[in-house]
Amino acid sequence: MAQLAEALGYCLLAWLAVLAAILAFRMLTGEIPLEGILTTKGEDIDPERLQSILVTCFVLIFFIIEVPGALARRSLPDIPQALLVLLGGSNGLYLGGKIARTQGAAPTRNRRGRKTASRGGGAPGKRRSPQKPS
């Protein structure tokens, strides 16, 4: 039964590898489009996206390099805390850049909204209230 379980494991590993190969092939042929992965609106490359890709590759390479040591510990490789912070910071930067670029198209509406809200939001009532006779 142990041999059967090992055979099942290898079959599932082969299945995962074939699936990854299909995805990689379709990305290469353009059936799964990769265009726009480094840009927000199809213009120049965004630096925050470029750094996010680089940090992702760095983390993955580090993770794979650590595999031989992890085999002896019977565990997936440990990731240093600094690398997690680096990945979190990188993703935070990417997220911030994305929010700034996508919502930067309509700042005037927000400003007008705030101004109108501050004028109309109960301000007249507050102005009249100090005029009570003492």
């Binding site: 090992e6 494991g9 590993l13 595999v67 085999l71 019977r74 565990s75 997936l76």
Partner: peptide, 10 residues
């Protein structure tokens, strides 16, 4: 993939 591979090995 690594989880499967390491599980098979160990």
């Amino acid at each position: 993939g690594l989880f499967l591979l390491l599980s098979i090995e160990t």
